[in-house]
């Protein structure tokens, strides 16, 4: 085995660790939201630094591999996948942080997401989507599995987000005094929907890694 495959293997281990950290980030966020815990949300904000550091380290390693080995074919696709997924994972973590920052508003206005059962539906779908997506990073999943994640986002997560927004909209009359809280509720919903989109992006990149086909905008 030459050096490049070994280094790609190590790169993917780092990527897998970053993915698991991001998954933990999301579940911590949801725990903080359900619990209405300000201290938990602040922990999420501070933990983001470590994820940013990992992102830079992985990107540096990808650039190093491209420069030193000029990879081709499967190796090239794997490194391209790592670069893109790394970026998407960092953006997922950023969405968690922006939601954590919105928590303060909800706590100040004493409004809980528990009032909106559809939030839970949306959150569960996104958590599941991220969990499935991470399997694409850690295991050699087939194309069909990746496509199912993409379709799930388009059909299920987007619909859950729309339903959640409508449920807030239906109760908008009661929130005259809590404009900021409504803004926070919708922003958190939007962040979850974006996380679903990013999972779908990762799945698209997984299809590219396996088949060389760019399926973006075509599924």
């Amino acid at each position: 085995m030459s050096e490049l495959p070994r280094r790609i293997e190590r790169l993917f281990l780092k990527l897998e660790r970053a993915a698991l950290a991001v998954e933990q980030h999301l579940s911590d966020l949801l725990f903080a939201i359900y619990d209405g815990s300000l201290s938990e949300s602040e922990l999420i904000i501070s933990a983001d630094e470590e994820i940013d550091r990992c992102e830079v380290e992985i990107e540096r390693e990808c650039i190093r591999l491209l420069a030193l080995y000029q990879p081709a074919a499967g190796d090239l696709r794997k490194i391209c996948f790592a670069i893109k997924v790394n970026n998407d994972l960092e953006r997922i973590a950023d969405n968690c942080v922006s939601s954590a920052k919105m928590m303060r508003i909800l706590i100040e206005d004493k409004i809980s997401v528990k009032r909106f059962p559809l939030f839970r539906t949306l959150a569960d779908l996104v958590v599941n989507a991220l969990h499935q997506t991470i399997r694409l990073v850690s295991a050699n999943c087939d194309e069909e599995f990746a496509v199912s994640i993409i379709k799930n986002d388009r059909l299920v997560v987007d619909e859950a987000y729309r339903d959640y927004l409508q449920s807030i909209f239906a109760e908008a009359e009661q929130f005259h005094n809590h404009v900021n809280a409504v803004y926070a509720l919708t922003s958190i919903g939007r962040a979850l929907e974006r996380i679903g989109d990013l999972c779908s992006n990762i799945a698209e990149d997984a299809v590219f890694m396996q088949t060389g086909e760019i399926v973006r905008h075509s599924i």
């Binding site: 987007d158 927004l165 908008a172 929130f175 404009v179 409504v182 919708t186």
Partner: peptide, 27 residues
């Protein structure tokens, strides 16, 4: 002021819902 804010939020909701609808149609 609160009523105006309420109107802004309603508009934002409608824009957001429209965006999702558009995205679903595109898909």
């Amino acid at each position: 002021q609160k009523l105006q804010m309420n109107n802004i939020i309603t508009k934002k909701f409608q824009q957001e819902l429209g965006r999702i609808q558009c995205s679903n149609n595109m898909t």
